[in-house]
Design a protein around this nucleic acid. Sequence first.
DNA 1: TAGATTGTTAATCGATTAACAATC
DNA 2: TAGATTGTTAATCGATTAACAATC
Lengths: 219, 219
Amino acid sequence: MSIANGIPDIVIGRLPVYLRALTNLAQSGKTNTSSHELGRRLGISSAQIRKDLSHFGEFGKQGTGYNINYLLEQLRAILNLEQEWRVAIIGAGYLGHALAHYQGFSSRGFRMAWVFDIDHEMVGKKMNGLSVQHIDQLKETAKQENIQMALLAVPTTAAQAVTDLLVDAGIKAILNYAPINVEVPADVEVRYSDPVVQMQHMTYYLKPELEVLATLSRD
Amino acid sequence: MSIANGIPDIVIGRLPVYLRALTNLAQSGKTNTSSHELGRRLGISSAQIRKDLSHFGEFGKQGTGYNINYLLEQLRAILNLEQEWRVAIIGAGYLGHALAHYQGFSSRGFRMAWVFDIDHEMVGKKMNGLSVQHIDQLKETAKQENIQMALLAVPTTAAQAVTDLLVDAGIKAILNYAPINVEVPADVEVRYSDPVVQMQHMTYYLKPELEVLATLSRD
DNA sequence: TAGATTGTTAATCGATTAACAATC
DNA sequence: TAGATTGTTAATCGATTAACAATC
């Protein structure tokens, strides 16, 4: 995570969530909303939403709230989503396959048109119309096609080594699906997507089963 | 997210990350570590790690740090991971397919042995050996098999309706992969996994391309 | 013993919330 | 106008960090 240039990273992290909620509201036919309505939908306070937005300007009107399309435009500009970002999928396994077929990227600012794998057997195979390339070609392709981001969907054991290749290829943002923390230079963004971390977060709040083990451990 | 019973939710959220890092350290053959080493790996301060752990007890020794296996055991106990949690995959599309084939669940406390879909055409098909069931069977199966958690991998348009079915079936924790905030009763945990939200968080920090549009918008 | 590292306290830092004047 | 809602300030609340006595 970058050191935020004045604006807290936790605020930046909420903007895509606002963007998503506003998009959903717009699709349901609404043209206006308020910090209260948005907050209710997201389970956060209206004050927090207004405060977050106030870091970037004034986007609403007293009495009537926010024009959804206008606020969407502004959020897209803030998040640098006025351009299309080019993203490589690294790893042509089941997860890479699912990512290559996911329909939700292009409408939200991302072009996923490249798949790489280290296995020569996979090279040339098609994934949703995309031809799998060998990872050795990454650097050249990344430069040519101006790829700045990668989704890392390789086995845990390969994650750090492949990350090093991504960095060497000039990739500046990595979403890592492998359950391991990778090291990168300070100018490279890394975020993590590990379902088990999220699931284990939830089990803390769940009622454990009553079972023999529980009884035994009471001694 | 639950209201934490005294212990901040943000602390709970870091425990699975500690658990993961410690597991990786153990696998690399180490038996001991320190808050400094762990912090360096995770990019957080050693003080924060010690403070987080201090909410639950004393797990280390002055001078020598932490026994990795002991700390792993303690963290598993805190996160209710001494039992195996049973988890249903909802949606037999590409993502459901990838989840059904993912090898990383069982070793970390989760048994993924059930796949449901709303499409009758999918019912009976096999996914990594699992027979896809119709969503109408969810409630009965969930009770019988004591399923408490679900991974929601259905289209956005179906997410809320299917969530209602999950809640009705007694599911108490949902990891939602659809890019929409769903409403649930207060006793149900929901967390989100939306790659685009993470990617849009990163684009904020990336240098936008220089392009004609950028020049024009400077006026 | 000397060095290392814990657990904890107090201080600092930062984020959230409540409240309200401004104004649509 | 009356009602609604913004943007912002100040107060509150909470999280992080620095420092260190205790002790392995």
